[in-house]
Structure formats: C-alpha cells, structure tokens
Design a protein around this nucleic acid. Structure first.
Lengths: 350, 350
DNA sequence: TTGTATGCGTTATCAG
DNA sequence: CTGATAACGCATACAA
C-alpha cells in the first residue's frame, strides 16, 4: 500500500480533459471557461491535490529551499538564528535545510557539496573555526549561488553579510570590566583567523588603549575548537592562572567559551567575581540565573537570522545579477547583572 | 551570468556519446567498456559533474530528505534532538528539513502540508501543545508516509515512537523531593492531553502514593503554551502561592517551565530551596551553574534524535510495508546538584 | 558494448 | 477555450 499522490494526469483522466487544461485551470488561467475551471478546482479540492514540488523544481530550476550551515545547532546563538531563518523562510514558502559542520572544515565542504548542485537555491552560512581555505565557497559564489554570510563571515567574498557589531560589543564589555576595577583582563577566544575573533579582539584592544592599559599578548588565548571541548578551555585557563602576572578578569569571546570558563572556575573553586572577573559573549537566556549572575554581551541572533534570510531571498528572487552587496551590522546588548554580591566585591576591590 | 550546472547531456555531447552511455558509465555499470568509462569519469571529474538531485528525486520518487517538526528549535531539548537527527541523516546521505510549529496547531498542519506531498520521504515529529486533532497525521500515515514520533507522541497512531521514560523520571524526581523533606509538592506542567504530561504526572502521583502523601489536584497546574510565554507561568505560580495550603516545592514538567519557574521565583524574591523547593525536566547544560544549582531530570535528547532517525530510515528504505512498530523508551538521568547551601537548608528543614 | 525511447509531474508553446 | 507535444535531468527497458 504505497503512498501514491494524485497528479494532474489523474485529474485529467478522471475528468476527461487534457493535462494542460487541468494545469491551466489550477493556475486560474484566463483562457479556461468558468465551468471547466470549477470542475477541476472542485475535483482537486475534494481529492486533496497538491502539485508535486519536485517536478516543479525540475521545471523551474529552483527548489524553493535554502541551505543553512552552522557549526552546531545545539548552541543558543545558532539555534536562535535558525529560529529567525525558519521564520522568514516559512513566510515565503521556502524550506530550510540544516547541516552542521561541527567545527570541521572537511564536513563543511562535504555539506556544501551535498547541499549545492541544484538542490538549494541559496545558502546561509557561518563558517567553521577550522576553515581557512575559502576556494570552495568562492567557486560556488562565482558560479552564481546566492550566499549570505552571518556571524563568522568571509570578507574576501563579495556578497551580503550579517554581523553583530563585535568591535563595539567587545569594546563596551572591556570598558565595563575596566570600570568595575579590573586591571589585567585576559581573553579566551576562538581561533585568531575567524572574523569575529579579529573584530572582538580589536574592540578589546581599543578599550584597553583608551584607558591607558598596556596590551599584553600573553593574556590572549585561543581555543582551536571554539570551546566545543571543555578540556581545551581548561588548558588555556590553566595557562592564564600559571602566568607570573595573573589576570584578574577573563573576557570570553564566544558563547561556549563563556559558559565553559564559568564551569571551570567553579570546578577549580575560583570565586567569580571575587577571585576573577568574568564577562563574555553569550546568547543563552539563563545568564541572569547563573551563580553569579553573569554580565554578557548578547547578539541579536533571531534578527540576524531574519535579516540574513530576507537578504538571501532578495538575491534568489532578483531577476538581474546583483552587483551591490551590503554588510548589515546589528548592535549587541551588554546585559549587566548587578548581583548584590558582585557589587560588594567590586566595592571592596576599588 | 546564471549558474548552469553540467548535465549528463552536456557530457554526452562533448564526448560524442549518448546520454545513456554516460549515465551508465557514471554509475559504473558492468556493460560499459573500460575505456569509455574512464573517458566519461575523467571528464565528469574534471568538470566537476554532480547529478541533479531534483531530477533524481523525480525519477526515483524519493527526495532523500526527511522533515522534522518541533515546536521550537531554540529550546535545548529540541536542538539537541535535532543534533542527533542531523548526525544520522548526514551519515546516510539524507537532508534534514526543519520546521517549527511554535506550539500552534495551525502552523503544524501547514508545515505538514508543506513538507509532504512528495517533498519529504519521511517525518520526525513532536506535536505541538495545542494539537488534539490528529486526523491530518493519521491520514498522512495511512497514505504511507513513514512517521516517527518522539517526545510528544500520538499513541493512537501505530508507528515507531521514541520517548524518554517519563514515568520513571518523574517518579524518581518526586521521590527525591520527598526524601529531601518536601511534603506538599506542586507541579507546573504542559497541557494535560500531551503524552509527556500524562506520563510525568502518572509518575508523580505514583511517587506520592508510595510515600503515603495524598494527591491534591489543586497542586497541579497547566500551562497551555508550554511556558513559551513567561506570564503564563507566572500566573500559575501566583495561583500556587495564593493557595490556602501553599506548596513547599514545585516540580516543573518541562524545559521552559523549569527555567521560567526559577526565573519567577528570583523575581519574586522567593529563595530556592529555602522558601520553595524546585526540580524539573531540563536539558540545558547550564543547570549545575545556576543559582542555586538545580537538580534536574535530563532526557537523552541526542540519542533520541539518533534513534528516531535510524528507525525512520528503516521505514523509508524497507521494501515491504512494515507491520510491527516499536516504542523505544530511553532512561532519563536525575542529576542531583548538592550545593552546600542546599544541604544546609535541607538539614534545617528536617 | 552502445544507442534510442520512455517516463517521473509539471508548465510553456504551439496548434486547433 | 482546449489539446497535443516538448522540455526540465536522469535512469532504464529495449533495440541494435
């Protein structure tokens, strides 16, 4: 008892018409008589006819689906972004096909190959921490595949991009740490080559400079796998703690890094913010409920997903090749959690 | 400069062969001479040929993609499940198409209509809180669409199901609350008709009974929208707090409900676990870092996604109609967080 | 061993 | 107003 969907041909046979007549009737063509139209429409309605999207895709050379590649779905920032993507895609009749790179370049390329070659109309991607070779993406872009980058962008490829104002976010966060009395602020970050890392570190450095604090590159630590592996974060935290001149605060430059730093501090019995200040980028909606309530920089993930999708659909549906691309920069929110405890500690510190 | 992929026809023309020869050569058919095969393969390789998946889908009447409908992606439990789903799908060459019902029955049906009618080969779904009419799903199932339910299942439809042992999880959690000294344990739960609600409430009731605590239905509160709206949770918490005989603990029966209860208690200045015990189902990986560290029941979300997908692929790829379906029940983990503070409070309570 | 013809479901083009 | 036919890209039964 195999699933056999009703086709236009079935309707034609049942009604003694030709397929083209049925097709036109269904599309409400002006050249079909009212009665034929009604007959077809009624029959289609009653028998729950739906055009076969795959046949349509073949004909129209478009699949009405967009591919999304992120490193990991189970990450607040990315799942919120996908939420926004799905929201716009759904409203415009597009499917969203999800793939995860799991921070692996190889998987990213495989996903790319897999999704492309005509099965997606466009691509929204945030590249993996490992990716330094953009030739595949470049080629894809040159072949005419509409691409929108978000978060971890590839600056060399000229297309729409959606990012948070990472510079400003990091700047404000660093200033907040400085104003809270911290003097030696370390960073735990993603790989150095990632766009977000560069932008955030630049903001951090600018804030230090504006407050006459000397930049010390021993205080900048990188996690090659973006904090996916806890031990990796633990290693760099240990390195920081073993420095001759220990830092008094950590600025974590990504979601997983922030929460994993907190986790490691807890395990090691390091009191936050007593022994060590902590602030980081994070999009979980639980940061205010943490112990201590953690001040965080939050990215407008949902909106970023919405905007990326809107831009992508513009690219997909534009008749002429698009020549001018934009980079949307959204503001981040610095959410300051002033637990009483934190205030006391900070007061004592000053 | 439009994206024009290489087709089998192009290769045939370029090499002076017929399309069928090329097709067979590419599929490594035994009836093609080694030299022709090599010529075709080399040309395809050099020109980066990829078969058009849409044409393949039309021919084979399968899209090699599976649909996933959940209420919300940006929910730890569901994003973890999708992680597992994507993992298995990827390894088997299937696309994952995501759709969100946002706890709305109408959207769920629209998604269903949208994804089906031949554009997906199978469906993995956890129904929305609103859904009480399963006729659409039933019809789909009868038409032969392979379906696997997970988490919020539809017991009336006979197909594979993947659930956590909600009864046992809730039982153990309730027992833990009882053993911690709580005597009047309220529940905040999803709508009563949801499978998970029934199973969890049954576990809760059984635990009460086994410990000679009378069940009081005034202590059972439902949130129609699954805690998507904070105010909804706040309302039922208020109702509980206004009871003549106030509860001394809350057992939250779902992810969002748990964290939102904690959030509301914080806002209201209710100390957990001093003024009010709290324990709930939750899959965020931050519960141990919360204030207080929250004991939770965790579902094996990733594995559930993996198993659901494995079962679905079996259904899809089985030649004969499958007649015997199974319900996989995975054990939950009760993660007990014994903060010193909590221990003191509980010691004082006894 | 290779080529020709057909069909998957749909729409567009051309006839009638 | 309606019908026949070709085409989208591919695989395959059938011919050669």
């Amino acid at each position: 008892m195999k699933f056999e969907a009703l086709t236009i041909k079935d309707i034609a046979k049942a009604l003694g018409l030709s397929t083209s007549t049925v097709s036109r009737a269904l599309r409400d063509s002006y050249e079909i008589s009212a009665e034929t139209k009604k007959m077809v429409l009624d029959y289609a309605e009653k028998n729950n006819y739906h055009p076969n999207p795959i046949a349509l895709s073949l004909k129209e050379r478009r699949s009405r689906s967009i591919g999304v590649i992120v490193c990991e779905i189970a990450n607040s920032y990315f799942s919120q972004t996908i939420n926004g993507i799905e929201s716009i895609a759904y409203n415009n009749g597009y499917n969203v096909i999800i793939a995860q790179s799991r921070e692996s370049f190889d998987r990213e390329v495989l996903n790319l190959q897999y999704l492309t070659s005509r099965s997606i109309d466009g691509l929204i991607i945030s590249i993996s921490t490992e990716t330094t070779d953009f030739s595949f993406l470049k080629e894809l872009h040159q072949k005419g595949m509409p691409i929108v980058f978000f978060d971890r962008i590839v600056s060399e490829i000229d297309t729409h991009k959606v990012i948070a104002d990472n510079f400003k976010g990091a700047y404000e966060a660093t200033v907040h740490l400085i104003n809270s009395g911290y003097k030696r602020i370390a960073t735990v970050s993603n790989p150095a080559l990632l766009s977000i890392t560069k932008e955030r570190l630049a903001g951090y450095k600018a804030a230090l400079q504006d407050h006459d604090i000397e930049f010390d590159d021993k205080l900048v630590k990188y996690c090659q796998h973006g904090g996916m592996i806890v031990s990796e974060v633990e290693k760099v935290v240990d390195e920081l703690l073993n420095l001759k001149q220990k830092p008094d605060a950590v600025f974590a430059l990504a979601d997983k890094l922030t929460t994993n730093c907190l986790r490691i501090f807890k395990v090691k019995g390091i009191d936050v913010p007593g022994d060590m200040g902590l602030l980081g980028f994070s999009n979980t909606d639980l940061t205010e409920l943490l112990d201590p309530p953690l001040s965080v920089i939050r990215q407008p993930a949902f909106e970023m997903g919405e905007i990326a999708t809107t831009l992508l659909l513009q690219l997909i549906e534009s008749k002429r090749p698009v020549t001018s691309f934009e980079t949307r920069v959204l503001t981040t929110d610095l959410l300051i959690r002033n637990s009483t405890r934190q205030l006391n500690v900070l007061a004592g510190r000053r």
